[in-house]
């Protein structure tokens, strides 16, 4: 049974801030179903980040609409949108994802605090996620005391903490060495498999692209290619 999580309908985005209007995205149609593991690729300036931001409700499209789980998020008010993101979408950014003054454990718990989950639930889920990302021993470390790879793993854990519909990751491995990148991908794959979590990530790293189940290529703000593939995994548990 297929279940559409993301439905982008005829979405365009034009930036008018500069001296010349820049068309970043042109009339894109995109469906992503629950449990997909999608890589968004393309040269820089092709509109990957813009598309991710609009799917994630961080930025509004100029025309067209975005439905998440059947709900139109394009016309939501600001606070409504923030609330929607909190409960429905997980984010992993390129770098500096975490709140610097909170420990790894607190960063993960923070999002559930915002959701007003009861304490036992929060603690149990935090514990489980820390185990999933293999950082149980670093629970009380602050972001500054973690390596870049560890920080991104905590970011992934935090993104999942709220039990979102899907997780958006914008170049999550851009600042990582290849071992850390592979490790992060392992964790994402595992969570995709175990928790049926949908991941959409942008990247231009070939090794990362290889591990996606579906690859969408953007060129000049349009979808140039959208293919399903059998991921090549290197991880020990596959």
């Amino acid at each position: 049974m297929t279940n559409t999580v993301i439905d982008a309908h005829n979405v365009s985005k034009t930036y008018t801030e500069g001296p010349v209007p820049v068309v970043a995205i042109q009339q894109i149609h995109l469906h992503i179903d629950k449990g997909e593991f999608v890589a968004l690729v393309g040269p820089s300036g092709s509109g990957k980040t813009t598309l991710l931001n609009m799917i994630g409700g961080l930025d509004a499209p100029t025309t067209g609409k975005v439905l998440v789980n059947g709900i139109d998020i394009t016309n939501m008010k600001q606070n409504q949108l923030i609330d929607f993101r909190l409960h429905n979408i997980g984010f992993v950014f390129q770098a500096f994802n975490l709140i610097p003054v909170l420990t790894a454990k607190e960063n993960i718990e923070f999002i559930m605090l915002l959701q007003r989950l009861p304490k036992e639930q929060r603690l149990a889920r935090t514990k489980k996620l820390l185990e999933d990302i293999g950082l149980s021993d670093k629970a009380t470390a602050k972001p500054g005391e973690l390596s870049g790879g560890q920080q991104q793993r905590v970011a992934v854990a935090r993104a999942l903490a709220s039990r979102p519909q899907f997780v958006l990751a914008d170049e999550p491995t851009a600042n990582l060495d290849s071992a850390s990148a592979a490790n992060l991908l392992d964790i994402m794959e595992k969570l995709n498999r175990d928790e049926q979590m949908t991941f959409v990530f942008s990247t231009h790293d070939n090794r990362v692209i290889q591990r996606a189940k579906r690859v969408i290529t953007l060129v000049d703000g349009k979808i140039a290619n959208d293919t399903l593939q059998t991921p090549i995994t290197h991880s020990e548990d596959s």
Binding site: N79, I82, D83, R85, F91, F96, L98, I99, P100, S162
Partner: peptide, 16 residues
Amino acid sequence: KHEFGIMIAIGLKKHQ
């Protein structure tokens, strides 16, 4: 600035 951006993106309301 960036930190605030992340916080709002992950679901912190402005008044918070």
